[in-house]
Protein backbone atom coordinates (compact mmCIF):
# COMPACT_ATOMS: atom_id res chain seq x y z
CA UNK A 1 0.00 0.00 0.00
CA UNK A 2 2.92 2.34 0.61
CA UNK A 3 3.72 2.25 -3.06
CA UNK A 4 0.81 4.51 -4.01
CA UNK A 5 2.16 7.12 -6.34
CA UNK A 6 0.11 10.30 -6.39
CA UNK A 7 1.92 11.39 -9.55
CA UNK A 8 0.17 8.62 -11.45
CA UNK A 9 -3.20 9.94 -10.32
CA UNK A 10 -2.35 13.57 -11.07
CA UNK A 11 -1.15 12.53 -14.52
CA UNK A 12 -4.82 12.06 -15.48
CA UNK A 13 -5.66 15.66 -14.63
CA UNK A 14 -5.58 18.75 -16.79
CA UNK A 15 -3.57 21.78 -15.64
CA UNK A 16 -2.51 25.13 -16.99
CA UNK A 17 0.54 25.84 -14.89
CA UNK A 18 1.36 29.49 -14.27
CA UNK A 19 5.12 28.98 -14.58
CA UNK A 20 7.09 31.15 -12.22
CA UNK A 21 4.01 32.29 -10.28
CA UNK A 22 3.27 29.72 -7.56
CA UNK A 23 -0.02 30.60 -5.88
CA UNK A 24 1.05 29.07 -2.58
CA UNK A 25 4.26 29.82 -0.73
CA UNK A 26 5.78 28.85 2.58
CA UNK A 27 6.06 32.11 4.51
CA UNK A 28 9.13 31.25 6.52
CA UNK A 29 11.01 28.03 5.69
CA UNK A 30 12.75 28.12 9.08
CA UNK A 31 9.41 27.74 10.85
CA UNK A 32 8.89 24.38 9.12
CA UNK A 33 12.47 23.31 9.72
CA UNK A 34 12.87 24.38 13.33
CA UNK A 35 9.48 24.84 14.97
CA UNK A 36 7.18 22.39 13.24
CA UNK A 37 7.69 18.87 14.54
CA UNK A 38 4.70 17.32 12.81
CA UNK A 39 4.78 18.64 9.23
CA UNK A 40 1.30 17.29 8.42
CA UNK A 41 1.34 19.07 5.06
CA UNK A 42 3.91 16.55 3.83
CA UNK A 43 1.46 13.68 4.39
CA UNK A 44 -2.02 15.19 4.15
CA UNK A 45 -1.77 17.28 0.97
CA UNK A 46 -3.89 15.21 -1.44
CA UNK A 47 -1.63 16.17 -4.34
CA UNK A 48 1.63 15.48 -2.52
CA UNK A 49 2.86 19.03 -3.15
CA UNK A 50 4.88 19.15 0.07
CA UNK A 51 7.96 17.00 0.52
CA UNK A 52 9.87 16.50 3.76
CA UNK A 53 13.56 16.65 3.04
CA UNK A 54 15.84 14.66 5.30
CA UNK A 55 17.24 17.79 6.94
CA UNK A 56 13.87 18.95 8.30
CA UNK A 57 13.18 21.28 5.41
CA UNK A 58 9.84 21.23 3.63
CA UNK A 59 9.85 21.75 -0.13
CA UNK A 60 6.71 22.94 -1.90
CA UNK A 61 6.02 22.44 -5.59
CA UNK A 62 2.53 23.65 -6.51
CA UNK A 63 2.29 22.32 -10.08
CA UNK A 64 -0.02 19.41 -9.13
CA UNK A 65 -2.12 21.44 -6.68
CA UNK A 66 -5.84 20.60 -6.60
CA UNK A 67 -6.63 23.96 -4.93
CA UNK A 68 -8.47 22.33 -2.03
CA UNK A 69 -7.09 24.44 0.83
CA UNK A 70 -5.95 21.57 3.05
CA UNK A 71 -2.38 22.83 3.56
CA UNK A 72 -3.48 26.28 4.65
CA UNK A 73 -6.04 25.07 7.17
CA UNK A 74 -3.98 22.18 8.49
CA UNK A 75 -1.08 24.52 9.33
CA UNK A 76 -3.16 25.83 12.22
CA UNK A 77 -0.40 26.25 14.83
CA UNK A 78 2.12 28.08 12.67
CA UNK A 79 -0.03 29.68 9.95
CA UNK A 80 3.00 29.47 7.73
CA UNK A 81 1.25 28.99 4.40
CA UNK A 82 0.54 31.97 2.15
CA UNK A 83 -2.36 30.76 0.07
CA UNK A 84 -4.03 32.51 -2.87
CA UNK A 85 -5.99 31.20 -5.81
CA UNK A 86 -4.02 31.03 -9.06
CA UNK A 87 -4.48 33.83 -11.56
CA UNK A 88 -7.73 33.57 -13.48
CA UNK A 89 -7.69 30.68 -15.93
CA UNK A 90 -4.58 29.00 -14.45
CA UNK A 91 -4.12 25.99 -12.18
CA UNK A 92 -6.20 22.84 -12.13
CA UNK A 93 -8.89 22.61 -14.83
CA UNK A 94 -11.27 19.85 -13.88
CA UNK A 95 -12.60 17.82 -16.80
CA UNK A 96 -15.35 16.20 -14.73
CA UNK A 97 -15.11 17.67 -11.22
Amino acid sequence: MNAVKVEEKLFQNRYRVDAGHPHITIKNPDTCRVQCKTQECTVCCPAGCYTAEGNGQVVLITDGCLECGTCRIICSEHRNVEWEYPRGGYGILFKFG
Partner: peptide, 21 residues
Protein backbone atom coordinates in the same frame (compact mmCIF):
# COMPACT_ATOMS: atom_id res chain seq x y z
CA UNK B 1 -12.53 15.42 9.07
CA UNK B 2 -9.36 17.39 8.40
CA UNK B 3 -8.58 17.47 12.13
CA UNK B 4 -8.43 13.65 12.03
CA UNK B 5 -6.16 13.62 8.98
CA UNK B 6 -3.95 16.09 10.80
CA UNK B 7 -3.85 14.17 14.04
CA UNK B 8 -3.37 10.73 12.52
CA UNK B 9 -1.18 11.86 9.64
CA UNK B 10 -2.89 9.74 7.03
CA UNK B 11 -2.32 10.27 3.34
CA UNK B 12 -5.65 10.89 1.60
CA UNK B 13 -4.70 9.17 -1.65
CA UNK B 14 -3.37 6.12 0.20
CA UNK B 15 -6.69 6.02 2.07
CA UNK B 16 -8.62 6.06 -1.21
CA UNK B 17 -6.34 3.44 -2.69
CA UNK B 18 -6.90 1.15 0.27
CA UNK B 19 -10.66 1.66 0.09
CA UNK B 20 -10.62 0.62 -3.56
CA UNK B 21 -8.94 -2.64 -2.52
Amino acid sequence: MLSDFKQQKISPYALLEQMKE
